[in-house]
Structures are given as C-alpha cells and as structure tokens.
Simulated assay, not measured.
Amino acid sequence: MTTKTNPGNFFEDFRLEQEIRHATPRTVSAGDAALYTALYGSRFAVQSADSFARQLGLPAAPLDDLLAFHIVFGKTVPDVSLNAVANLGYAECRWLRPVYPGDSLHSVSRVIGLKENSNRKTGVVYVRSTGYRGSEAVLDYVRWVMVKKRDESAAIRQEHVPQLAGRVAPEQLQVPAGLDFAHYDWGLAGSPHAWEDYAAGEKIDHVDGMTIEEAEHMLATRLYQNTAKVHFDQFRQGREKLGRRLIYGGHIISLARALSFNGLANAAFIAAINGGRHVNPTLAGHTVYAWSEVLEKAELPGRKDVGALRLRTLALKDQPAAGFPDKDAAGKYPDCVVLDLDYWVLMPRQS
C-alpha cells in the first residue's frame, strides 16, 4: 500500500541551502481585498480607493501590504511550518513592489539556518522566502520557526544560526514606482499629521480594541491558504497544553496595523519589517489593543514628498494600551503583550 498524502516536513528533513519552490500560485483579486477589509477594518486611503491611489500616480489601489505578505507567507506553510510548534520571528523583510488585483503570486524559500533545541524534540528552521509576480520579486523576508522532529533520536548533520541585520537601512527602502505624494488629500486620508509631525521617542495609544472571534481567525488563515494544523484542528489542539486553536501570528499583525490607523492614518505603506516577535499566544475571545513608539525618522534619497518612520508597535490582549505596557528592565514581557513589531512605514511630507 502506498501513501499519497503529504505529512509535511519535520525538523530533520531540512538541509542548509535547500531551495523549496512552493505550491500553489495564487491570482489575487478585489474580492480578496474586500474580505481582508471585512476581517480587519483597515482604513488606509491608498489601499481603499482607486481614485485616491490614481491621484498619487499609481494605476489603482494596491492590495494592503500585509495581505500580500500573508499570501506569500501562506504558500510557504505546507513545506516549512506544517509541523510547527510556533512561528518565532521575522527580520530583513522588504516590500519591493506593490501588488495589484489580477497579479499572480508564487513563493520560493531557501533554508539559511538550522538549530536543534536542547530537548531534541524540536528545532528552529530559518528560511529566506521571496514572493514573485512572474519573474519580479515583490516581497523578501527571513523568518524562523520552531518545528517538531519526527524522530527525537535523529541526528542533525549540519547546524548554523544566521547573522541577521538589526534593521533594514533607509536607503534600502523601496518607494512604489510612480508614487508622488505632492497631491495628497489630507482630508480624505483622515488625518492632518505628516512625517514632520512625528518625533523619535513619541508614544501613541491607538485607543481602540477589537475582539477576535473563532470563525474570523480561521477564515483569515484560510484566505491565505495557510494550512498550519495549530490554527484549525481543535481535536488535536484539545490535547495540547493550551487546549485551544492558536491564532495565526499574522492575524495579530494585521489587527495591530488596522488599529494603528487611529494615530498613524498617513502611514500609507509598510516598507520593511526590521524584526518581530510573537511574545505570547492569542486565542479566540481575546480583545486586541495596540500602541506604537516612533523609534527613528529618515529622509529618503532624492525625495521631498515622502519620508520614512521606524515604528515599534506592541499588540496587547485584554489590556488597553493607555499605560503603554512593555517589557521590564530584564527584558521580560508582561503576559498581556502578544506582539512586538519593529518596522518602517512611508508617510507623506508637507514640505
């Protein structure tokens, strides 16, 4: 008897420099964008209206940057993290080109690091994944994920932990082709605050909260064709420590981004993710809040219409953000913190 089903890769199946060409290519549509809006309520103007985007020199409203990220990410899951315990972090993530309805995306990953855990039951796999539209790269990022071993006694032939940049340099940030913020409509965008109005060290409470429903997080994860078992299979998860389906970490990133509109409405594009950690698990029924800190401001070479803000956004569960909950002097996070994300956004300038 033969088996034709795919059990997914376990930690000992990966090899350094292994290249994985992922199934399945995906043509994205306006329907995907509409469903994404229904799930998160994002209100950023450039991604909401063709008319607004065309006024800035773009051919149409691009897909939300995180929707593109999740679709590219979702392609990698059956090969990289089907047997994951947890997705641990991100680095060196850059959006290279906007994605528009009608574009077809596919993903390719390369294994750049392997490190077995001391319990010998799991190991950490580092991959650099790239999303393509035809032959054009639209997104490139590194992530690391803890994956179960099939056989605890299996020997790992070669291990390596890659050295990753602490941040994407401002000169590496890509401004979408054709974009010109000279005719930006501040009223329609929803806020008068430009790049000049923010200062390093400033903290912003995004005020609003959003409660996660069980059906919503599973619907979102299916939208991205992410097949990780921990998000769907209550029969299996009921036998694990938490006893519940875990919410896809990207779902929390998108919620935090949508909530950040209140205070950062003109952060029109995410240009890069410098680093990110899923600090504590989130389950259905939790209410997510968020706050952000401005870490750095940067001018972009040859551009007077747009600048970059480096932000650190923390997402919280069942804890309003007014007190800006954060890790202590020893680096320990309170239980309410579920996400710590360091990223660059592009914002129009007034001068």
Rank of each mutant, 00 (worst) to 15 (best):
T2I: 14
T3N: 14
N9W: 09
F11P: 06
A30S: 14
D32E: 04
A33C: 06
Y36D: 05
T37V: 07
G41I: 04
S42R: 15
A45T: 13
Q47N: 11
S51M: 04
S51K: 13
S51H: 04
R54A: 03
A68G: 10
H70P: 00
I71L: 11
G74R: 13
K75T: 07
V77C: 10
P78S: 11
N87V: 04
N87G: 11
W95C: 04
L96S: 01
Y100L: 09
G102Y: 09
K121D: 06
S129I: 01
Y132G: 08
R133N: 06
S135P: 08
V142N: 01
W144N: 12
W144R: 04
V147F: 05
V147C: 08
S153H: 13
S153C: 08
A154S: 06
I156A: 04
R157A: 14
Q158R: 15
Q158S: 12
V161F: 01
Q163D: 14
G166N: 12
E171P: 09
Q172I: 06
Q174H: 13
V175W: 00
A177W: 00
D185I: 07
L188I: 14
S191I: 01
Y198H: 09
K203D: 01
L219T: 10
Y224P: 00
R236A: 13
R239A: 15
E240W: 03
K241H: 10
I252A: 01
I252Q: 02
A256R: 07
N266D: 13
A271E: 05
G276R: 09
G285Y: 08
H286F: 12
H286I: 04
T287P: 05
Y289G: 06
L295I: 00
R312L: 07
P320A: 11
D326W: 00
K327V: 02
A329H: 12
V338Y: 02
L341V: 05
V345E: 04
S351D: 15
